[in-house]
Design a binder for these strands. Structure first.
Lengths: 196, 196
DNA sequence: ATAGATAAAGAACAATGTTCTATAAAATAA
DNA sequence: TTATTTTATAGAACATTGTTCTTTATCTAT
């Protein structure tokens, strides 16, 4: 008697695993994201995760990279007359991404960022930050922002944004209109960074 | 023949468990914080955690509350001539707490805050926020800050602080002097919130 | 001092990340 | 096309961890 095992085609299994993981992540959160469930949802055995990603952390890193690619797209906006306006629009995109993908955002910024990431993952994350630095630099050039180090100012803007969406995702918000409160905080920060 | 089990005295075992958990947390991080290791370090069996805290999450909630009590102490400062200065000093204390207890801060804000907490834990956290609201309110009364809702402004200040220390703890910082960058961000935000 | 109540020790259980092994599918060669 | 080698997957097995169960040492009240 021969075995009854069947083997699924190897085509695009990697993508299926990532898709399954993303779906489970947003549905059940990080604790619900088990290797078995991801593999099952993708129609493969748990081993499939290990042959393709090396470990569960490897899969999570793939989600991390997917997330930063999405974030990059969310903050990328066409040029406008005012560089500061373009920066503001990008910040709104940042919040939109976070609010629309709360579990993924949590994974990216509150889990993976604390772990040892591969150089590729770090590069990708840094590229997103680079976009923000560019916007800040442009606003400095147009004299809409003061200061000398666009990197340092960008870090401060990013910090404020991250803190705001992070607490909002956690359900810690005492303002009635959270989008408006986010914008108000950002406006205050940018006003305080304007030339005087 | 009688068993060779010994039973440790019940006095102050709860505190021993919390102390052990805090030590392991900062030494090995959240993944290293296992019930067995905590119990072992406290000199009791794993069951001790369950009889006293109900579950591992119960123990983590005790750490959460310990953390917020410490944070409360860190942001609590004596009155000064300028309410805004007092607010600023409290914010520096906030950062100091976070940087000195990075793993605990991570547990508090990036893990527990996302879970279902007991009313006691929520109250304690809200009390810390209340202190910040008071400082903001005082600065509004002295016309050093503008705006009508001290709660909303306090939330924005907290957001910015949290984002800054959160990224700093994660190792994401592009400024040379991080304490200075934190202060610079805070200054910009408070300037942007000043009456005009 | 004795009896009952309490809670802790240690074993056992369930779930999860990971590894191992047999083998089905694919790739290659003749 | 057929035979052989390689690859990667299915399913079982293993280690660790959160949790529960059972036995029994310790505590408390009389």
């Amino acid at each position: 008697m021969q075995g009854t095992r069947t083997r699924t085609a190897s085509v695009a299994v990697t993508d299926s695993l990532i898709e399954a993981a993303l779906a489970i992540l947003e549905e059940a959160g990080l604790p619900g994201l088990t290797v078995r469930d991801v593999a099952s949802r993708a129609g493969v055995a748990p081993m499939g995760v290990y042959s393709r990603f090396g470990s569960k952390d490897g899969l999570l890193e793939a989600l991390f990279m997917y997330g930063f690619a999405s974030l990059q797209a969310a903050i990328e906006t066409p040029p406008t007359a005012s560089p500061l306006t373009r920066l503001r629009t990008g910040c709104q995109g940042y919040r939109r991404f976070a609010i629309h993908n709360p579990q993924l955002y949590h994974l990216m910024f509150e889990q993976m960022l604390l772990l040892d990431l591969s150089p590729e993952a770090k590069d990708l994350a840094q590229r997103s930050f680079g976009t923000l630095v560019e916007r800040v630099h442009a606003a400095m050039t147009s004299s809409e922002l003061a200061g000398t180090s666009s990197t340092e100012v960008a870090q401060q803007v990013w910090s404020a944004m991250h803190g705001a969406v992070s607490l909002e995702i956690a359900g810690v918000h005492f303002a009635t209109d959270r989008a408006q409160s986010f914008t108000a905080m950002l406006d205050a920060l940018l006003i305080g960074m304007a030339p005087r």
